[in-house]
Design a protein around this nucleic acid. Structure first.
Lengths: 217, 217
DNA sequence: GAAGATACGGAGGCACCCTCCGTTTAACAA
DNA sequence: TTGTTAAACGGAGGGTGCCTCCGTATCTTC
């Protein structure tokens, strides 16, 4: 990176410190107040001037991105670990479940993320991308094993995940999200006789079995 | 104040007119600019003072609710019609598809609705409720016919629907949403025997195993 | 018409956004 | 150390949107 001329001044200590402070404050403020939270409140909590905040993070999205970076990292790492488990579908399901749990502890932040993802900002480039990769590795494994249908991309799955989680109005939202994700994964399975004709589906006459009701866990 | 009677005074003509104007303006403004749109812009477009707007609709949510009421009504009616179709699952699928299409024409409004639903405001009472009912009638029919699993409530399904639709960042979001909903409905089907390892899974076992990795960068 | 009731509009106070710039301070060289 | 200077600091200030309040205008009714 440094090219001609060696001179790279050491970054100023106060700048480094303040940046860190702002990040920490932002994490707390966004977690509590959601994405609409006042940036001035963040600055105040961090004990810096509003100008300082804006210098470090010119836009609201920039701040989001920085804050979420590590959070996303965690989720991403989890996927890495799950890659070693036996059952690919189960691994995927587990990752999704962890994602829900994760989201649960960061109320406001999730909304912020969803919002940022939607607005197609730069945050997309890192976070969304990163998660796509994480989820992709799990998905691919399951698909390669012939357990899941191959026509759903990691991006699709991630979107579905966000969608399911985006709904947290009620106190019970978590179990709802878990249930919905389970259904989704079920739908993702390669089906014996089924689908193939999405729209016109004639409904396989005999589906002998009764309500599955197997999910839970 | 006297009087004979309980006859209520006829509502003032200008009030009625203005209310209508505001609604119309709001519909346009929200559709274009999303839920964050300036209420002052709405008032201006409607040709009334900001005070008038607030008198008619004390809160932003109130305005949303009024605007969406008719939209929701349409979707609700569609469900009514579909109730007569032959295949229950297909009917449900079709309603969901129409929902996506519907959403497509109201960009900003959808975000607004999702937001409102989430905030647990009064809009919930009508819109969400209404749609739940609509979707519920379709869902029940399919469940009664033994085609779909019985442990997913109309509310769940509606949430899933919103979730899938909430993602419209890319121009291709529609097809994505349709695909995801299809998967979801598939997952909703009563499954013969859990995952039943039918031999058919071999199908994509081969699958080029080179799926993603298209990382940007 | 006249009398009230009702609705109207927009000024005003507040909060937040973001920019701009004079002041302060840390890093480095002498 | 001390001096130089680039970098960082903070917060005032101009802009916008939210919502309330209330004097004025308009409509309904008698």
């Amino acid at each position: 990176m440094d090219d001609h001329s060696d001179q790279t001044r050491k970054p100023r200590a106060d700048a480094v410190r303040n940046r860190e402070r702002v990040l920490e404050a932002a994490k707390a403020v966004f977690s509590a107040g959601g994405p609409e939270a006042s940036l001035e409140a963040v600055a105040k909590r961090a004990g810096v001037g509003i100008g300082t905040l804006y210098r470090h993070f010119p836009t609201r999205e920039d701040l989001f991105e920085a804050v979420y970076r590590r959070e996303v990292e965690q989720l991403s790492e989890l996927a890495e670990q799950l890659k070693n488990s036996k059952d690919p579908v189960d691994a995927l399901r587990r990752w999704l479940r962890s994602g829900v749990e994760f989201v649960a502890t960061k109320k406001g932040m999730m909304a912020a993320l969803a919002l940022a993802v939607q607005s197609g900002s730069e945050l997309h480039v890192f976070s969304f991308d990163r998660l796509t990769k994480a989820i992709g590795s799990l998905l691919d494994r399951a698909v390669s094993a012939g357990e899941l249908r191959p026509d759903i991309s990691p991006e699709d799955l991630l979107r579905a995940f966000f969608g399911m989680c985006y709904i947290h109005d009620q106190p019970r939202w978590q179990s709802t999200a878990l249930r919905l994700l389970d259904v989704f994964v079920d739908g993702l399975r390669v089906q014996p006789a089924g689908k193939a004709e999405t729209g016109t589906s004639k409904a396989r006459a005999a589906r002998g079995a009764k309500p599955a009701m197997k999910r839970k866990r």
